[in-house]
Design a binder for these strands. Structure first.
Length: 316
DNA sequence: TCCCAGGGAGGAT
DNA sequence: ATCCTCCATGGG
């Protein structure tokens, strides 16, 4: 079923810094932006490249160590270069995973037990800081299923509708200025985001007014960035760390949610009670520039591999 | 029905 | 500083 403007290219394992598990990377429900749509082993998303909305589908064949990423996209041929660069960036294909494994793959390091099952899992980055921040806010006290749905509804009701080259429509994530004009009651009704509407609106208004420039946070230290983000209504330590990690690609940020709290308590503190603040500091101190990756592996392991032994009340 | 979801604000200890 | 309660909404 050849379509107008359908093109393709490949990324092979010798262009990637170490192993890749594409499906695990995309499906791991990382907070940042709505999850890509999935059909079998094919993952689809839309991204603005050179101001043109491009719909692309990626799939991995081969093994986690010897593979080819096949990329199909609907767009002009010349877009393949920026699209390749885009994928390389958001999938973290140049992150030095072999170095990560070398540093922490020894018996006394509990993190190492996550490596066999999660080998090739990479840390996805967001593409739009504002979108990442809003999605991080939506994720608070919420399930991945629900905040993803809410984000999609935000796009549908407040985002600009664009026509893709294959004739289908897509709604971009709304701009701060658009959300800044919305009303709490109306936004709640349309998106089911509940009490988080106030946080979304206040943050959007601050950014729309120019009182908060997300791009400037790139040049801040971790502490400065954290301090600035905590001033936002609805943004606490976990949301701030999520945004810094996924939205700003600060790999030294390690958000501590209930799952990280459970598994860190179990693996590193012999189930002794520690606060989330202590856990966050522990992860940053122990893993340094790899704290974000350590968090990712612990989270995915806790939630997807061994959830039953970590649920509240269970002890093993 | 109740409990939980990648928490945080506001208030009381 | 740490602990408590409440906060909308929908899934299991």
């Amino acid at each position: 079923m050849a379509q107008l403007g359908q093109n393709k290219f490949e990324i092979s394992s010798d262009e990637v810094n170490g192993p890749l598990n594409l499906a695990e990377t995309i499906v791991s429900a990382q907070t940042s932006e709505p999850e890509w749509s999935r059909i079998g082993e094919y993952f689809t998303d839309v991204e603005l490249l050179n101001d043109i909305p491009v719909k692309y589908t990626v799939t991995q064949s081969g093994t986690v160590d010897d593979f080819v990423i096949k990329v199909n996209y609907v767009g002009e041929k010349q877009i393949s270069k920026p699209l390749r660069a885009h994928l390389e960036k958001i999938l973290g294909l140049q992150d030095d995973l072999p170095e990560f494994y070398r540093k922490f793959d020894f018996a006394e390091e509990p993190l190492s037990q996550t490596f066999p099952r999660l080998r090739g899992l990479r840390l996805m980055r967001g593409t739009n800081p504002f979108e990442s921040l809003i999605c991080s806010i939506l994720s608070q006290n919420n399930s991945a299923l629900l905040w993803n749905r809410t984000a999609r509804l935000l796009m549908r009701h407040y985002g600009k509708k664009v026509r893709l080259l294959d004739g289908s429509d897509f709604f971009l994530f709304p701009k701060p200025e658009t959300l800044a004009r919305a009303k709490v009651r109306e936004m709640r009704a349309k998106t089911s985001m509940g009490y988080r509407a106030r946080s979304v609106l206040e943050t959007s208004r601050l950014i729309a007014k120019g009182d908060l420039k997300l791009d400037e946070l790139y040049s801040y230290s971790y502490e400065e960035s954290m301090e600035t983000l905590l001033e936002l209504y609805g943004v606490g330590p976990k949301v701030a760390d999520c945004f810094m990690l996924y939205g700003l690609a600060r790999l030294d940020a390690a958000p501590v949610d209930v799952w990280i709290q459970r598994i860190v308590t179990k693996l590193y503190f012999k189930n002794k009670k520690v606060s989330k603040t202590q856990s966050a500091k522990f992860l940053r101190d122990r893993f340094g520039e790899w704290a974000g990756y350590a968090q990712l592996y612990l989270f995915d392991f806790a939630r997807r591999v061994a959830p039953a032994t970590l649920r509240t009340g269970k002890d093993s």
